[in-house]
Design a protein around this nucleic acid. Structure first.
Lengths: 269, 269
DNA sequence: TGTACATCAGTGAACGCGCGTTCACTGATGTAC
DNA sequence: TGTACATCAGTGAACGCGCGTTCACTGATGTAC
């Protein structure tokens, strides 16, 4: 069973090597079960059965069902995060639109390659399960990539920052960088003081993003972020039936057009 | 138990009245169970227990667990659809922006009032469950409301249609009605023939929408539709932590700003 | 209005299944001398 | 290099639980004459 090789010299003992191997086999089996039965159908007994071991043996590797679930969630976030970072990093730093496109399609590709892990983290929450704080870091890797693009874009023409910050320009709700129609929000006209409420709402993100990025760009960033995951979720969860074509290439073409328009909304060059 | 009143004269017998009453009690209990245990935790035995009847008695009202689930899904779609239609119908027909705002906030309000039913229909699909075709109609009620707004908006200035239809304007990807930056999509520059792919992808929706509405407006409509459900899902499923503020009014203010900007993207007056 | 029969709601026991988790135990692997 | 002891992987039985669904049965409600 345990093959003695010198190819992995950093493993101390055969026992540890075997342990790592079986642990990852358990995680793999868990991922496979996620596919057929969903998160709430994840069963330690079924995994044990699949690996040909007694159900009690799994407890040598995993403390409980919930711990396995947490592990799978973290892995999913990290896998998606790594895929996105990698694809985005391959693009020339100055090509903001290219970076945006790379990141978006990396997310979509990952989601369709791993639909159940996507559903696990971006679908309905597992009832009765509460995510431990360890998941926060991995969960924000995709967002981080997108935020960096926003920052680089703002630094490209830093004048926009002065126009956009709450201090210098309160109460006005710029509908979009790109709107020539010049609608001002009805709320802004009726109650100038309350119109800054959306800026206040952005505080948590605002506090971790440099001042070059105007509030309005943060708002736009969040909206495209929501659009990205909205499009992917609707498609993956079956809401595109009779809406977007199902012929080869249709879904991809629709998504590509979304990415293009999001880029325009973000004013990426 | 059964109170004899003449207030519902259309009920033929006491038996039928009781039957309808208990059926709806079962559905209510099902909805309550959805809340605590999620769709995959929905249990006929638990419902029977809650109603104080033998587990086998539920089968007088419901053929199987899957049938109950289907019923709950249809009810959810209909409830959301009715809420949206009602709120939107209360707005002056000419006030397109008001109608859009009413529809959007109706969806959000309903989602937060019925988080589990929302998750049931817009969250991860229930593993092993396939929705019967009866659900298609109710499922599209929200979309219908939004589409009608798009149509009325296009009819407001029908010239846009000529500019936007595939026949007269193929290959060019207008990033937005409202974009003054004038980026043309890189795809369009590289391969004009393939650039119309996104138009082809819109065919299913295209075929049920009058020609006054240009392809580009359909694309924008789909993107805001995805943005709407994306924002609601991300918020409801807990992805706004450390992103959008959690003080009273923050989430609402953020959403209101989203609605305003979506309206601008759709070029609503 | 009264009786005979049909319909239907509800019962309780049972079948066969799967689950998470614990526990005392065996036997192999690793470590200290 | 060899032995004695500690560590750890894996076993199999058990506990107590919940589930969907079926079935023969009782008793109440409705209907036709």
């Amino acid at each position: 069973m345990t093959i003695m090789t010198a190819t992995e010299p950093n493993w101390r003992t055969a026992r540890e090597r075997a342990r790592a191997e079986i642990t990852s086999e358990i995680l793999d089996a868990g991922r496979r079960h996620l596919a057929t039965d969903g998160a709430s159908g994840l069963s330690l007994r079924a995994i044990a059965r699949e690996l040909g071991m007694a159900s009690s043996a799994v407890y040598r590797y995993v403390a409980s069902r919930d711990e396995l679930l947490t592990q799978l969630i973290m892995d999913a976030y990290n896998s998606l995060g790594a895929a996105t970072e990698e694809r985005e990093a391959a693009v020339d730093r100055a090509d903001l639109r290219g970076r945006w496109t790379a990141a978006c399609s990396a997310v979509r590709d990952w989601a369709f390659a791993n639909p159940n892990e996507y559903a696990l983290v971006y679908g309905s929450p597992v009832p009765g399960y509460v995510a431990p704080p360890d998941t926060v870091g991995p969960a924000s890797r995709v967002a981080n990539v997108l935020v960096l693009i926003l920052i680089d874009n703002a630094e490209r023409r830093p004048d926009a920052a002065v126009l956009g910050t709450a201090q210098t320009d309160p109460g006005v709700s710029p509908t979009s960088h790109a709107s020539p129609t010049g609608h001002s929000s009805p709320t802004a006209l009726a109650a100038p003081a309350a119109a800054a409420a959306w800026r206040t709402a952005l505080e948590p993100l605002r506090s971790v993003i440099p001042a070059v990025v105007p509030d309005s760009a943060i708002q736009d960033g969040l909206m495209t972020w929501a659009g990205l995951f909205g499009v992917i979720s609707l498609e993956l969860f079956g809401q595109f039936h009779n809406v977007v074509g199902e012929n080869p290439g249709d879904r991809e073409a629709f998504f590509a057009e979304c990415v293009t328009r999001w880029a325009a909304q973000l004013d990426l060059p």
